[in-house]
Amino acid sequence: MKFYQPTTLKQALKVLANEDDARCLAGGATLVAMMNANLLAPSALVSLSAVKGLAGITRRKNGSVTIGAMTRHQAVADTAALDGGQRLVREAAALIGHPAIRNMGTIGGSISHADPAADYPTALVTANATVTIENSRAKREIDAQNFFTGYLETALEPGDIVVAVSIPAGVAGAGSAYEKFARVQGDFATVSAGVVLALEKGVCRHARIAVGGCAATPIRVAAAEAKLVGSRLQDSAVAAAGVLLAAACDPIDDFRGSSEYRLMILPTILARAVSKARVRAETVS
């Protein structure tokens, strides 16, 4: 195994292009655990820690917020830059693992690993984020929703590096929330839900929902969002949205909960997220 410590993105991309089976080392919270468990033995580790320009949070004039791939979970949890419809991303980051994991893990590493029970994927799909990817030949952008393609599978090709994630300003006056149900503090989600809402005189005029832990990727259902838009977010409307989402899900059975259990609690987790987001949208508007 080789070890590379590039200091520029260009160098990192070059190493990745030239080494067969090299892997980026971000926080190591997942990669090193898998190496320790004898599940992975890459030919080379390309550490991104010293690469300039990959960490940090920038808020642009148009209200969008760009988070560098190497930004730690704790930095996202602590930022004041994410508010309104973007707030759920910060909320999701704060719920990842434990303090030590949040000091190590990065947004780029989390989405590249693409665990269906992880927190960022669901929050980023809800927030309509864009992932910026670069390889030695080109740079491209892809919607979070299209970035996640399966169990631990993404749109990344060999040689690609996630450089940043951008969260658009979104709808004015929106409130958002990320709700996670886990067996214990710091565990991956059994079920999670992200919600962005905007209201006008108590009537919902915009809704975006994604649920996590319930399928290979975060699940969004346009018809479920449509159930909320135009409603006063009464229990029956939220429950109807929950039913539509559950119908589109196909959760795994594991120690975090059986498939049936996950589908059973999904509407409750969604309702909690909706009521939090609603209160926040009301205080904004």
């Binding site: 599940l39 169990y151 594991d254």
Partner: peptide, 14 residues
């Protein structure tokens, strides 16, 4: 073995 300990729920879907 090593794979038996990893992501059994996902393995089953796979």
């Amino acid at each position: 073995g090593r794979l038996g300990k990893f992501g059994l729920g996902m393995m089953k879907k796979k």
